[in-house]
Amino acid sequence: MSDKQSAGSKIILKVLPYLSLLSVLAIWELVVDTGVVPNTLLATPIQVIELFFYKLTHADPDGSVLLIHALTSIGEALTGYVLALAIGIPLGLLMGWFVVAEGLARPIFEMIRPIPPVAWIPLAIFWFGIGLTGKAFIIWASGMVPCVINSFVGVRMTNPVYIRMARTYGASDWEIFRKICIPSALPMVFGGLQVALAASWTALVAAELIAADTGLGFLITMGRRLLMPDMIVLGMLMVGLTGVIIGVIIDRVEKRLVAGVRR
């Protein structure tokens, strides 16, 4: 495209996105209002907004207010996510540097890795029921993989010259691991955090769709069961919105933590 953005194209880029969104909403509203798509299959945007405000304060017809659904999902997601970080990152780092750790952990990890995390859902329900523990387990399983891989690769990519330099200082293997490999792997590790978050959130919603009594995924399922298309759409939108908010918060935290590392 043009190498210099003119003032005109800047204004166009500010206005057009709103116009585009508004027209989608308008068309959506119209096709349902005029009966092109029956209201029993698709809710109108206005109905969804009405239900949003209704659900802020009312627990019926699905049993909980919107905030409880959202907090349940966030709580489950963060529990599993933190567990994935706490176990996955150290494991990946150790596998990257210590041959023994790689030899022991790699085959197990490679065996589990190709199984999509959602495939764990039936077993998790079987073991832990439909509460927090089962969800946390599924999220842990899906968040682990990117954590381990990124930490492992991060350590492996340590510039050999840094390691050589540390050897000339007489540093031991353990010291090189702690003082050279880990700091140099950090940007890669933090890159894995966002990937892990996306994986966790996906797995959570899938798990809630199948087995839950609260949560945003459960809200979607209830919408289907109660034949309430507005509730289905509200649930979908809330899943997206909450995911974005968590992503932004984690991004902020990450930027704070790596202020001195990523350069």
């Binding site: 840094y162 000339t168 700091p183």
Partner: peptide, 19 residues
């Protein structure tokens, strides 16, 4: 083996970038 009794300055810049 390498050791601190021999100090090395490499051709390429080998400073630790996070320090």
């Amino acid at each position: 083996h390498p050791g601190p009794d021999r100090g090395i300055v490499f051709q390429r810049y080998t400073l630790f970038p996070w320090k």
